[in-house]
């Protein structure tokens, strides 16, 4: 999958939950879901469920544990897509 497609897809998923719209404009690998994008931690679960639906993968709890930044999320998505 193209890097920019993955970025765009992920940004689309995160958008409705990001409370800091300014940080969303600067969406990049180091964006931290909670600290920068100000996603409510209960909505982190929604992001993970949306990622599972969108990419048809399963994010187990151990992978979810490290999914705190855009870069983390992309790494996990790529890894799970490869395992398919």
């Amino acid at each position: 999958m193209e890097e920019k497609d993955l970025n765009a897809q992920l940004k689309n998923i995160v958008e409705p939950y990001a409370q800091n719209k300014e940080a969303l404009l600067k969406f990049n690998d180091s964006s931290h879901f909670i600290q920068d994008l100000e996603v409510n931690s209960a909505n982190l679960v929604d992001i993970i469920l949306d990622v599972e639906d969108e990419f048809d993968i399963e994010v187990d709890n151990d992978s979810m544990e490290g999914m705190l930044t855009v870069e983390d999320a992309k790494k996990i998505i790529r890894q799970k897509l490869q395992e398919k």
């Binding site: 931690s41 982190l44 679960v45 544990e65 705190l68």
Partner: peptide, 8 residues
């Protein structure tokens, strides 16, 4: 460092 694993 922060992590997210509420089931644990």
């Amino acid at each position: 460092a922060p992590k997210f694993n509420p089931c644990s």
